[in-house]
Design a binder for these strands. Structure first.
Lengths: 200, 200, 200, 200
DNA sequence: GATGAATGAGGTTTCATTCAT
DNA sequence: TATGAATGAAACCTCATTCAT
């Protein structure tokens, strides 16, 4: 039942190796050999499992998206109001197991290459749409109609920008701190702070 | 004095071609041949002018950074207060001649590849530092010390995020509108809006 | 005694699959995986039975040669004169169970690759020698010595040529018709037709 | 005017090397590296000129077909009767510069692989149609309508069969002798020999 | 200044074969 | 007996770069 087949185990190992290797060398520069070395396997066996390099990349991105989705669902389960759910969406993006320099780096790599790979672009579109629908649903409960779209744009831009900064600065930011900052941004965007305080 | 040498003219043509080609194919996938075709030249002549592919890429990024710098300087020249100068920094990033889908795409390509090219990384660091120093200088005039850093982070993240969104959605946003939205974000971050209104 | 072991049954299935797969993809392009798929088996099991790809090919060719040999022996058993035996040799080559587009195609594949595989070349030599000795034996009874060799060459060339045409045109020729035409060629070569009529 | 460009010269060299290499190793087994070695060039430069292995093969076959066509046209020019033209068609196939073991071997390789390469198949069809139309045109002048098709089939089969034999026996046959034998076959098929003599 | 020609280096992918199960 | 799993070897092809012209 919960048993994992050898295939599943191997898949996961290879995907972990891919994440590390992509972070080290860059998405479209990394070679199958480098990934294989990282996984203590042969390049041929990666093709055996994923069919091609692009197949591997797609599987890797799918893996990350699933992680993000799970984090978001988990947060939602414990939230009891629109505001808390809004926080939960932000928290998912800055969750402990997601918001590391390595993973921010991978995300950026995928973003940058999505426009040139239909398979990546598709995953990106799906994810973006899902996050957006969550955002909008909650914002509609909290803001007048005409402010919903701009608020969503600002929040989404903020989240993307933070990831990008972490990816580029290669300087780790504690996830908890990132979540605190994100909550403040939500508050400011919703005008919930009397004094509008962006500092800790 | 304003006379351009043949070399300068050719350089500019090749850089323009590079921007187009990188946008079409992606930074690390585009080939010298594709760039050459875009410029109606030969791959060999590009090496003649820029030494190597990486040299060309560095020159191209430098070209874009110069454009950005000029836009910022021009804005500063007309600004007469900290707030106006803050607006000017944002405006430069969303200037008519910079904020196109193509160019946002290129920026993202450069960002994504900077960590893997020392020459690109250096340019990125320099630029980032310059923008940051502008931001901080103005914010210090407008906010208490402990709120300066978070405000800067939020504004920078917002700007990066917007570029990224435009690059990925491939859906053009009118620069003027982007500037208006950016001003509102500045206002909100500074708590300058009594009603804290993010909508038009 | 006529009992077939599992091994024999499996062998035959795999050989049939090989014939189909070689026809579909070409001798030196077909892969073990494709053959295995055709036989609903695994590539590994083919190696278990035949040792290697070349072993399988040799067995397959041997299988076809045996079929041809049997057809020739059967024809000989019913022939009562040199001329009838000559007809029988031709008939064997155009027998119902041998003269199909698929099999002509296989033959051509084997011919074309024999020069590059010692094992195939050996089979080819043996077969060719056997057919030749039959031909010569009968022709010697029907023609003066100095006309035997040229007549053999012509008949052999004709037979090969017809197979080749069928293999390449991929347009089936009814075996019975091929046999009729072959008989006429024999007659012409032997000058047995007063009017020398090559038409039906 | 008659000047050959470097490109033409190189093309020809590479094609000659291809013929030799294909003869040595077999059509679909020969590697680019082997061909390159034969031409004292690099594999990369072959792709530079022909785009791909298949492109090279197509060009090589086209080269051979052109040679055959020229030989046929030359023969036709000197023929003054249907019979002489018929001889000329046969002679072209067994011309001194075409009827060598090496070239017969190449032809067979191309035939065997044509069914699996659209580009080769196309060339084959075109050539076959051209030869056939020549044959039929002359045969119609020499035979009653109902004997034309069978006579053509027999002659074509004979020609193909002889090439195949030479390719497989790897035993050279003097072209002049092959032509003499071919003329006799024509005579027999047309019933022009009172004694129907297939011997020298 | 400009470019065909040429190539070495290297990447992805395929495939026959082996082996543990 | 049968086959997933794994891989070394090798093939094709691409591409940045060099160089003679």
């Amino acid at each position: 039942m919960g048993r994992k087949s050898i295939r599943d185990i191997r898949n996961e190992e290879l995907i972990e190796a891919t994440i590390v290797a992509v972070h080290k060398h860059g998405y479209s520069v990394v070679t199958m050999a480098e990934i294989a070395r990282e996984a203590d396997a042969s390049a041929a066996s990666i093709n055996y499992y994923f069919g091609s390099k692009e197949g591997l990349m797609e599987a890797t991105m799918r893996h990350l998206l699933t992680k993000l989705k799970r984090a978001m669902i988990a947060g939602y389960a414990q939230a009891n109001s629109p505001l808390e759910r809004l926080y939960a969406v932000m928290d998912a993006n800055f969750a402990d197991e997601l918001f590391s320099t390595t993973q921010c780096s991978i995300w950026m790599q995928f973003w940058a290459n999505a426009p040139y790979s239909e398979r990546l672009a598709r995953l990106h579109r799906i994810n973006r749409a899902r996050v957006q629908s969550h955002f909008l649903a909650e914002l509609r409960c909290l803001l007048p109609a005409e402010r919903v779209a701009p608020a969503h744009d600002a929040l989404q831009a903020y989240m993307d920008g933070v990831w990008l900064q972490v990816a580029l600065s290669a300087q780790a930011v504690p996830p908890a701190e990132a979540r605190r900052a994100a909550h403040r941004v939500v508050d400011v965007v919703l005008n919930r702070t009397s004094g509008g305080d962006l500092s800790a």
